[in-house]
């Protein structure tokens, strides 16, 4: 893994306006590049807006589609991770996150865990992904997750066993359950993401959406954690904010040396037990 500068672009999208949002992503990517960042992360479904319902069909795009040109062009200068409703090769629409590096698709990831309860209705409109895979980039070996995936620790575990040194993620988290000390979602989100970084000893960065859709405010509060579990950045709640974070790759070796979590993890036993459970199911 290399040292690099990561931009967390916690931005608002214009609901349903693909062209506008693609232009905004490309513009913010260029600004981040000018500020010295080598990679920029955008929120979940940032190109389309989140609460798509039937618009998921109308707005589904292919990662190499013509409308993506501004982002693909901008990615020649800075690596760009963004998210959109994808018309997949099997003609099913999924929630995808794509990392573009050097004007090429470095990796496309399709969200696996689709929240469908309360105000969430993702499984009603989207197909689920079925691939968890780390991949090599000039920055290091990465893994991608999208929002609810972060709440399933097995996914981060698979990525870290597959060699991921850093997990890049995006989300759209509604600000909710306001108590006397702020929104309860803050505590749960930071606890969950911090724990992924700490227990798997990987970097974790997640960019969260802001802005309102039909009265729902998205929370922001994007996070970057180091492999020792320390927070490298917590962005402000509810407002647009772009922050550049220096990723010091040496922390990875230090964290894994100081505390042997990564090497003591018993993957073989987990696998045996999983196989037994599956056989008995």
């Amino acid at each position: 893994m290399k040292d690099f500068r990561l931009a967390i672009a916690q931005i608002e999208s214009k609901f349903g306006d693909l062209a506008y949002n693609i232009g905004k992503h490309a513009r913010v990517a260029k600004e981040s590049c000018n500020s010295g960042a080598n990679m920029v992360l955008f929120p979940e479904l940032g190109l389309s807006g989140y609460s798509l319902r039937d618009l998921s069909y109308n707005l589904a795009v292919r990662p190499d589609g013509n409308e993506m040109r501004p982002i693909i062009e901008a990615s020649k200068e800075i690596a760009i991770f963004c998210s959109f409703p994808e018309m997949c090769p099997d003609h099913v629409v999924r929630i995808s996150g794509c990392l573009y590096i050097g004007g090429e698709i470095a990796q496309i990831y399709r969200k696996i865990h689709l929240p469908t309860h309360g105000l969430f209705e993702e499984a009603r409109y989207f197909g689920k992904g079925n691939t968890i895979r780390a991949f090599d980039t000039p920055f290091g070996r990465l893994g991608i997750m999208i929002c609810r995936d972060l709440w399933h620790p097995e996914e981060a575990y698979v990525l870290s066993r597959d060699g991921a040194e850093m997990i890049i993620a995006c989300s759209a988290i509604p600000a909710r359950v306001l108590g006397k000390n702020g929104f309860s979602v803050k505590k749960f989100f930071e606890r969950t993401t911090g724990n992924i970084a700490f227990t798997n000893q990987v970097f974790l960065a997640s960019t969260n959406k802001v802005g309102y859709e039909d009265g729902v405010a998205f929370f922001g509060n994007s996070v970057v954690f180091g492999p020792d579990g320390h927070e490298l950045a917590i962005l402000p709640e509810l407002v647009e904010h772009v922050q550049i974070v220096d990723i010091d790759s040496s922390v990875l070796a230090k964290a894994r040396y100081n505390m042997s979590l990564y090497r003591e993890s018993d993957f073989g036993t987990v696998l045996d037990e999983m196989e037994r459970i599956e056989k008995n199911a």
């Binding site: 214009k14 609901f15 306006d17 506008y20 609460s51 319902r53 039937d54 859709e213 039909d214």
Partner: peptide, 11 residues
């Protein structure tokens, strides 16, 4: 089964 959020009209 014609379902869009109200903010579809935004912009």
């Amino acid at each position: 089964d014609f379902r869009y959020i109200r903010d579809w009209s935004v912009g």
